[in-house]
Amino acid sequence: MTAAQERLVSFESAGELLHGVIHEPLEETQQALVFCHPFAEEKKCAHRSMVEAARACAAAGWAVLRFDNRGCGDSPGCFEQYDLNDWRLDIESALECAARETSSAVGLLGLRLGATLAAEVAEDRPDVACLVLWEPIVDGERYIKQNLRRSIIKAMMTSHEGGGSGTTAAHTAGASGEGTVDFDGYSVGEAMREQLAEVNLLEPPPVYPRPVLVVALGAGEAMGEQLQRLADAYTMGTARAVRQEPIWQRIGVMDATPVISATVEWLRQQ
């Protein structure tokens, strides 16, 4: 049973109307979070887990605003129209909406690229109450390379199932042309690709002064070097490795209980 209520909300960002859902505890709260969704196909895969996380946070006494960036989900526009600067602005607009709607101090929780954008926004917004970063993209170049890998592997598997040799997988996956990268069916143009390539959460080192939880999700108990370095770089950073299947990689029902429980436990301590 969810001890919370949910209502639709709309708010402006750069003159366009974004749509989201506010999850509110039944009892009055002074704490809220804005959820920042991941990028492209990862958003779709993680949707259910993000909803479950929002409900769990609300049950623990935190109001949550989930919303879709411009060009994504229920919000207006086409994916290709917008870039990372637009989406950082959307997060700022969502912060203001959440503060207005819940009268609370508002933190940010993000997954993958959503976590990265949350961390970048917080660098200029010390009023952000706290940060929860689930598997943030620390190195944009590496992220692009990994997505290209995924495309190559998919092309290889498709070629194999269709009776092809599989040897042209790399060429097929990279053949989007005009500097465009295929992110699991989402066309990422050259400008966006350049913005992604510039992402580096460790350089310059973060200066956000409030509590930060950096969560690594994976098979092992180790944080991974990059995420540990990121957690260590924050003055109030906490690192937490959670044994959890990657909730952003696969469409379908995934049990996100481990990462949700770890997050709620940390939130209760704030």
């Binding site: 990994q146 190559i152 592997i153 290889m156």
Partner: peptide, 23 residues
């Protein structure tokens, strides 16, 4: 397969080239 690639790279300190991928 993607997980296996990442696992091999991390555990054995190797790097896959795009043209290496085959079923």
């Amino acid at each position: 397969l993607f997980e296996i690639v990442v696992g091999l790279e991390e555990q054995f300190d190797i790097s896959f080239e795009d043209e290496d991928f085959s079923v």
